[in-house]
Nucleic acid binder design. Structure first.
Lengths: 198, 198
DNA sequence: CGGCAATAGATTGTCAACAATTAACGATGC
DNA sequence: GCATCGTTAATTGTTGACAATCTATTGCCG
């Protein structure tokens, strides 16, 4: 198994369902309900709620539990997109180099996962693989140092992920990014990334 | 009491001590140790560790506990500072208006707290009040929507908070910010904020 | 002597019971 | 009728015990 602790598995699952829009905005999530559904105690659920609150998916209030986070107001969205773009481009420029074989292989694998998800057409899977590919690139060039902010920004964008109607386009945009990386063409890589993050 | 749950109190306390540099980088923190020191069970300590890991102060590894986070590499620091600056300026511009009496009063109160802390000369207190004032401004003009990213960026900057040798300067820079806000001079406010965030 | 497996100790992960807090409801007095 | 105060049910917060996992040590075998 890739993720080890129950907490991590639960966190992922709930995050997926949130991206999938399976809960409505503002809806309260009860620890006991999910504990029962997953067949575990409230402990890991609590931890997952805490973490997802930090990530920006849930809103936490002391002694009152969590509710599904309201998407950021439109005027903030523009800033959020811009910040994420800056991080990804910064990392590419800063860490630019010829990738080792296995490094590029991991990116290619992420792209292939995205391909499958786009074919299958499941929203949550596409979103997760989309983010997953970007994360792989980010980590490869820039390490894990900026990951938390970046993830938060992504989660905020995910709360209003409106562009999932055309999966072929989504995939094609990422092919451009990966090809540019493969050919060592930095300028084209940045161009492709800037075009993709919106 | 301001903060209610034990978890929140513990989180704040540990965060303060981390900012204060009371632990060395890379040092592991044991749940049992801190639980004993605070006279509580491991539960809230765990939660605090989880949260502080998300905030970027600690590094978490499954089944291995947490260690004090390594400060971000210098090349990232520049980006982090820039992102924080963008957020604060964006919010000021976006939400600029004449503040209501109590709104400005809260900012003034934060400034006065910073004054006390600078006089007392305690590093952690100065850092906390510094951040506290900025947070008050951020929330007043832009709401809580961008708070989490902003906090993360701040925490990363705090890991290398090197400019605490001259408290008078720190205070003076913030006086300029607050005065500009008070006089409704947006351009000067932004200028003062950009000069302060570095 | 060096490498490897079994083992013991330390540490984190999970659980279920209990305590504290909150919110809704209804009784009571004005 | 209206506000206020207990009361109660639902929910989160905390705890201590137990299980799972990792680390270091020790003893064994080649």
């Amino acid at each position: 198994m890739i993720t080890k602790t129950i907490r991590e598995q639960i966190t992922e699952q709930i995050r997926d369902e949130l991206m999938d829009g399976r809960f409505t905005v503002g809806q309260p999530l009860r620890e006991a309900d999910l504990a029962k559904r997953f067949g575990v105690s409230r402990g890991p659920i609590r931890d997952a709620f805490l973490q997802l609150s930090q990530e920006g998916f849930l809103a936490y209030e002391a002694n009152r539990g969590v509710t599904v986070q309201t998407p950021p107001p439109d005027e903030n969205r523009e800033l959020i997109v811009s910040l994420r773009r800056q991080i990804e481009c910064f990392v590419i420029v800063q860490g630019w180099r010829k990738l080792a074989g296995d490094e590029f292989h991991r990116i290619a694998a992420a792209l292939s996962e995205l391909h499958e998800a786009c074919d299958a057409g499941r929203v949550a899977a596409v979103a997760r693989c989309d983010i997953g590919l970007h994360q792989q690139i980010l980590v490869t060039y820039g390490g894990a140092s900026l990951l938390p902010v970046w993830k938060w920004l992504c989660s905020q964008m995910m709360l209003t992920y409106t562009r999932l109607d055309d999966y072929a386009d989504v995939f094609e945009e990422h092919v451009r990014i990966v090809e540019a990386i493969q050919h060592g063409d930095q300028a084209r890589a940045i161009e492709a990334i800037e075009a993709n993050i919106k």
